[in-house]
Amino acid sequence: MFSGFDFNVIERSWRYLFFDGMEFTLRLTLFAMAGGVVFGTLLAMMRLSSIKPLAWIAGTYVNVLRSVPLVLVIFWFYFLVPYMGAWVVRSDTPIHVGAFASCLLTFTMFEACYYCEIMRAGIQSISRGQVSAGYAIGLNYWQTMGQIVLPQAFRNMVPILLTQTIVLFQDVSLVYVLSITDFVGAASKVAQRDGRLVEMYTFVALIYFISCFALSLLVRKLQARIAVVR
């Protein structure tokens, strides 16, 4: 079936594919996960807050970002972030924001909406009695959240948070639309230059499949273990 195809193209370019492309993809995934979980948790706390405007702002933010395609959000941020930066530092010319920083901000802000919904469910799964107990022994809101509610919510939600991270890892491929060199971007640049689309894209699909499948098996194992501990 693969006669006439030249798989050497992978051998010739693997260093570029992995050390430039995959490195960018992994770096972006990990940083965006960290940022997304932190910001997502804050959003979840805002959504569950008794202060109505806070809950409204967070709710609208999450709903709006969940209603538009990620591709469109990527375009928005790539072109808009430097203007926002200029507005923040009161500069009259747009400030320089690199491709990585811009993508990181995009994915952090976007994925935070999904992490937010997961963390919200996690927080809601903690019994109200625990919160009351926290206040009863004199802890304030931040102490109750930080020392009692969030650690448990986080632990309960670890498997779903990780599954969402696998989705994020796959989503990062969409920076291709900006011609940025992530794993897919690197592969497509080589593929188009050498006219080897079939070989390259098959290889890319295989690498994604193996890594995502292995990760999801790990998550499932973890889930089973956590279920026992609970």
């Binding site: 910001f39 409204w56 702002i57 609208t60 933010y61 709903n63 709006v64 970002l65 808009l80 972030v81 926002m84 930066g85 507005w87 923040v88 530092v89 500069s91 400030i95 924001v97 920083a101 901000l105 802000m109």
Partner: peptide, 24 residues
């Protein structure tokens, strides 16, 4: 449009988190 306005407001507010070097 209200939803949109709040989106923009939120993104702008949050972009402050990203570190921007103070202009020398």
């Amino acid at each position: 449009m209200k939803r949109l306005a709040s989106l923009i407001a939120a993104t702008v507010a949050l972009s402050a988190f990203a570190a921007f070097s103070a202009p020398a």
